[in-house]
């Protein structure tokens, strides 16, 4: 089965915030090595969906299967109950996340930010992790910034450190939550270049993005969300060129490349 089972399978995902249903039953699968882009107007539930995927927030209904096994629930005394925060931690280390606002730890240097979780969470030897972190910094073209604190770096540099921090966990998939939205136009390019590199290396990524150029040229599949539902999905070139719903047509019209 493992040959055909997708890396991630989402079935009927529902999330309510108060009285409002933010996600109204989301289904999709992600295969190993796929680059999936989630697009949609603000308020369509994209970021909520991404946070449900690594269970930063718990869905109210539906299932998330990671490598064929359901996550977020455990069996105890013959009863199916929600997993505790501690029980979710191993899963989160396999599906790392990069945030819109970088969220680097401000009291740690670039290098310390990267080695923190591999050393303290995975318990790996510091010397080995440091060598890997330096290689990751070089990969995101920041080898010269390893001793800089976040406040000394530009937004583009901070975001590339955040990507290196996520990669240092050696995750099997990466979640990108509008990672270029907080950046000035001239800084978006350097972050998108790193995302292109990752896609070329075969990294599985799920990105919420407004960068239509990136979605068209890099994504294997695009998922268009509208009001908590997946309205269209498929090959980005086809889907974006021939919208089947008025909502996607309006969205494509409204966004600029």
């Amino acid at each position: 089965m493992s040959g055909t089972e997708p890396l991630l399978r989402v079935e009927g995902l529902v999330k309510r915030l108060g009285a409002q249903e933010v996600l109204k039953g989301i289904d999709f699968v992600v295969h190993r090595g796929e680059v999936v882009a989630i697009i949609g107007a603000s308020g369509s539930g994209k970021s909520t969906l991404l946070r449900c995927l690594n269970l930063l927030i718990s869905p109210d209904n539906g299932r998330i299967l990671w490598k064929g096994r359901e996550v977020g629930w455990v069996e105890r005394g013959g009863k199916r109950i929600r997993a505790t925060e501690r029980e979710l931690l191993p899963y989160r280390t396999e599906i790392a996340m990069v945030f819109q606002s970088f969220n680097l730890f401000p009291h740690m240097t670039a290098l310390q930010n990267i080695i923190e979780a591999p050393v303290m969470v995975l318990g790996r030897p510091k010397a080995e992790v440091t060598a890997e972190a330096e290689a990751l910094l070089a990969k995101v073209r920041l080898g010269h910034r390893k001793d800089a604190y976040p406040h000394q770096m530009s937004g583009g540099e901070q975001q590339r450190v955040a990507i290196a921090r996520a990669l240092a966990m050696k995750p099997e998939a990466l979640l990108f939550d509008e990672v270029t939205s907080a950046l000035d136009p001239e800084l978006k390019g350097e972050v998108l270049a790193v995302m292109r590199d990752l896609a070329a290396e075969g990294m599985t990524t799920i990105s919420v993005s407004h960068e239509m150029g990136f979605v068209r040229s890099v994504a294997d599949r695009v998922i268009f969300m509208h009001k908590g539902r997946v309205r269209e999905s498929g090959d980005p070139k086809t889907v974006l060129a021939n919208p089947q719903t008025p909502e996607l047509a309006a969205f494509v019209e409204s966004v600029t490349d």
Binding site: A96, M97, N103, A117, M120, V121, R165
Partner: peptide
């Protein structure tokens, strides 16, 4: 900043850490 806590959770850091 709650976003720092969220980042730490996403990295698998347990509450005490």
């Amino acid at each position: 900043d709650p976003r720092l806590t969220e980042a730490a959770r996403s990295l698998g850091m347990p509450p005490g850490l």
